[in-house]
């Protein structure tokens, strides 16, 4: 049990908000982490007790689910998309707030005799999307895109999209309106199930983040 704990953080949106929270929980990456020119993917913490890896948000969940990383920070959208049984999300960090929504063109045709039983939807979240539509009794055919979902309706790729919405500006700029909110999203501390059960340091890490989130809620 002498190997360093590995902590996975996502590139992009959540990271800027996550770093101060991590710092308060005592997880401070070495200075090279903030050096834009540095192409390394793995960094030590200042106290040398942990290793921090910076990967894509979806890969944070995968690294942690497989136990390749012990813990990490990722949005609840990603957690829901994979629905990995080996993943725990014991602390809501109350950062990175947005929502996952269904959107369609503002001037969508009103011709609607009854309810659709089959729809094509462009999204980065095919599993979550098909599960949500399934619950409405609709078989959703998901077209997996990695970005720029907002283009799909205007170019006839799909009538609807499912994507993250924070201010709604991007949707409006592309002539789309939000029709349903699938889920509110916030960043969570995630840990690997087996690691939490077998490595006391993981439990201590969860405890530090939890104490932090509770003191802030108070």
């Amino acid at each position: 049990m002498t190997t360093a704990l590995t902590f996975a953080v996502p590139k992009g949106r959540i990271l800027d908000e996550a770093l101060p929270v991590m710092a308060r929980a005592g997880v401070v990456p070495e200075s090279a982490f903030n050096d834009k020119g540095n192409r390394a993917l793995s960094f030590a913490t200042e106290d040398g007790a942990m290793r921090i890896i910076r990967v894509r948000a979806f890969d944070v969940a995968t690294f942690v689910a497989f136990g390749a990383a012990h813990a990490g920070i990722v949005g609840s959208d990603v957690i829901e998309e994979f629905n990995y049984s080996e993943l725990y999300a014991p602390v809501d960090l109350d950062i990175g707030h947005c929502r996952l929504s269904v959107a369609e063109p503002k001037d969508a045709s009103v011709y609607s005799p009854g309810n659709a039983s089959h729809l094509r939807v462009a999204t980065k979240y095919p599993n979550l999307t098909s599960r949500w539509f399934e619950r409405q009794g609709i078989q959703a055919e998901c077209v997996k895109l990695n970005g720029a979902m907002e283009l799909a309706p205007s170019l006839g790729l799909s009538l609807r999209i499912v994507d993250l919405v924070s201010s709604g500006r991007t949707l409006a700029d592309n002539g789309l309106v939000e029709t349903d909110v699938i889920m509110p999203v916030s960043a969570r501390l995630i840990v690997n199930r087996a690691a939490l059960k077998t490595d006391a340091r993981v439990a201590q890490l969860v405890e530090r983040f939890r104490a932090l989130s509770e003191s802030e809620a108070a």
Binding site: S76, I79, A89, P90, D92, R188
Partner: peptide, 22 residues
């Protein structure tokens, strides 16, 4: 899923201490 945020949304706030009684 030990999802503290999700648990509150599901109306199970009273069950939160169970998450931490491990």
């Amino acid at each position: 899923a030990k999802d503290a945020g999700g648990l509150k949304e599901a109306g199970g706030e009273a069950y939160l201490p169970l998450l931490y009684a491990s």
